[in-house]
Computed example of a mutant assay.
Amino acid sequence: MPDNEDRASWAAIACQAMGARTGQAGYFEGDWVIEPELLMEIGGDLIGNLFHLAVLNGCDPRQMLMNGAGHFMYELREEIEEAEEAEALAEFEEGFQELENFLELGPGKGE
């Protein structure tokens, strides 16, 4: 069964493949090690490109983001529960609620 490091490596492969086409290929140091600011750049580009793909296929990009966040939270919850870190789980669940609120309202709304 894959763990979250496996999932991170799959994401790195997607970023590396996209980077090979966009000139961002040299960002990674090894399998999935990358400077945070570079990850924010290429990761944001990949997410934006997935949104374009979603729209072209009649999908709602916000729903795609919610689905991804839901998968992330489920997988993270599993990892935290296995490590029996209840405090960490509560913090991440609070963060997920903030993400849901953001997606429902949109940036800059309801603040």
Rank of each mutant, 00 (worst) to 15 (best):
V33S: 06
N57C: 07
I13W: 03
E78Q: 12
G70F: 07
A14V: 00
E104T: 09
G110S: 07
F72R: 01
H71T: 05
D45L: 10
G106Q: 03
G23F: 10
C59N: 02
I42N: 05
L53Q: 11
N57H: 15
A90D: 03
V33M: 00
G26M: 05
P36L: 01
F51L: 04
M64N: 08
C59G: 01
G23W: 06
L103H: 04
G95W: 00
M64V: 13
N4F: 11
E29R: 13
N67I: 14
L103T: 06
G44F: 06
A17D: 05
E35K: 14
L38D: 08
H71L: 05
E35R: 11
E29I: 03
F28T: 02
P36A: 02
N49F: 11
Y27A: 10
L103P: 03
Q97F: 04
A86G: 11
E100P: 00
E98V: 06
P107I: 07
I42E: 02
G48N: 11
N4T: 08
A90S: 05
C15T: 04
L38P: 00
E91F: 09
A20E: 11
G43L: 12
V55R: 15
A69H: 03
D60R: 09
L50E: 02
E98G: 12
A12I: 06
G19H: 03
I42V: 15
E41Q: 14
L103S: 10
C15Q: 10
I34W: 03
L105G: 04
A83N: 09
P36K: 01
I47P: 00
E94K: 08
G68N: 11
L105C: 09
G110I: 01
E100D: 08
G30D: 02
D6P: 00
P61K: 12
G110C: 03
E94M: 08
P2Y: 07
L76A: 05
G48W: 05
E75S: 10
Q97W: 04
E82I: 12
A20H: 12
V55F: 11
E104N: 15
L56D: 11
W32N: 15
F51N: 09
G30Q: 02
E41F: 12
F96W: 15
R21D: 04
N67W: 07
A69K: 02
N67D: 07
D60A: 08
E91L: 10
G108Q: 04
L38T: 05
D60I: 00
A86I: 07
E35N: 08
G68T: 14
A88Q: 12
A83M: 08
E85A: 12
H71R: 09
G30P: 02
F92A: 13
E82K: 13
A88K: 09
M1F: 10
L105E: 06
L105I: 01
Y27C: 04
A83P: 01
L99P: 00
E91G: 01
M1H: 14
T22C: 05
E100C: 06
G108V: 03
E79W: 04
A20L: 13
N101C: 00
E100V: 12
M73G: 01
N4D: 04
I42M: 10
F102Y: 15
F51C: 06
G23K: 04
M18N: 06
A90E: 10
A90Q: 09
A12L: 04
L89T: 03
A14F: 01
L39S: 07
N49P: 01
H52G: 05
